[in-house]
C-alpha cells in the first residue's frame, strides 16, 4: 500500500505497475484506477488553475487511514493513493487512487469509497485562481452526501 503527498506530476503507468507489483494476491482479477484533474471552470466561469494546501503529517496519516479502511471493507489485495499539492494548472492531474481485488465490484467500490471519503476527511484545501486573484473553494454539500452514502451503509449492515 502507498499513500503519498507530492508536488511533482505523476505517471499513471508507473503507479499502476507499482500497485500490481505489490498485489498480495499476485494476480488480482480486477484493478481499478481513478485520476482526478483540474477543471478549467467553476460555477462562476473560467478559472486559471488551482493551488492546494495540506497539513504535513496529518494529511499523509489520513490518506493511510483511508487505505486501511478501504482494504478491510472491500477485501482489497492492494491499494494506493497519491495527492498533489501546490500550484496546478488547468487539466493537470491532482489525485490518483488505485485498487486491486479479486473481483471488479470490490475494486470499483474501494476506489469510489476512497475518493468520497478523501473529500470529506483528508486535510487538503483548494484555492481557485481567476483573473489573477485566488478564492478559497467552499466545502460542497454533494461531497458530504457522497461520504454519507457509505456511512449510511455502515448503519444498515
Amino acid at each position: 500500500m502507498f499513500a503519498r503527498v507530492i508536488e511533482a506530476d505523476f505517471s499513471q503507468q508507473a503507479l499502476f505497475d507499482e500497485l500490481c507489483q505489490h498485489d498480495k494476491a499476485s494476480q488480482s482479477g480486477a484493478v481499478v484506477t481513478f485520476t482526478g484533474r483540474v477543471r478549467d471552470y467553476n460555477a462562476n466561469g473560467a478559472i486559471d488553475g488551482i493551488e492546494l494546501e495540506y497539513y504535513p503529517g496529518m494529511t499523509e496519516a489520513a490518506l493511510q487511514r483511508l487505505l486501511d479502511e478501504a482494504t478491510t471493507r472491500f477485501n482489497l489485495a492492494n491499494a494506493g493513493i497519491v495527492h498533489r499539492v501546490g500550484r496546478l494548472e488547468n487539466q493537470a492531474q491532482i489525485v490518483w487512487v488505485g485498487t486491486c481485488a479479486a473481483h471488479r465490484q470490490d475494486a470499483f467500490n474501494g476506489a469510489s469509497y476512497m475518493m468520497d471519503m478523501l473529500k470529506q476527511s483528508v486535510p487538503i484545501w483548494k484555492k481557485e485562481w481567476a483573473d489573477g486573484s485566488p478564492t478559497w473553494v467552499a466545502a460542497k454539500g454533494t461531497d458530504s452526501d457522497a461520504a454519507m452514502r457509505w456511512l449510511t451503509d455502515d448503519k444498515d449492515n
Partner: peptide, 24 residues
C-alpha cells in the same frame, strides 16, 4: 487527529484549526 472542542490539551500537544476540507 480530528477532535472536538471539549478535548483537553496540555503544553506538549499540537493543536490545529482549519476550515472544512476541499481536496480531491
Amino acid at each position: 487527529t480530528l477532535c472536538d472542542g471539549a478535548t483537553t490539551v496540555s503544553e506538549q500537544d499540537e493543536v490545529a484549526f482549519f476550515p472544512p476540507v476541499t481536496g480531491g
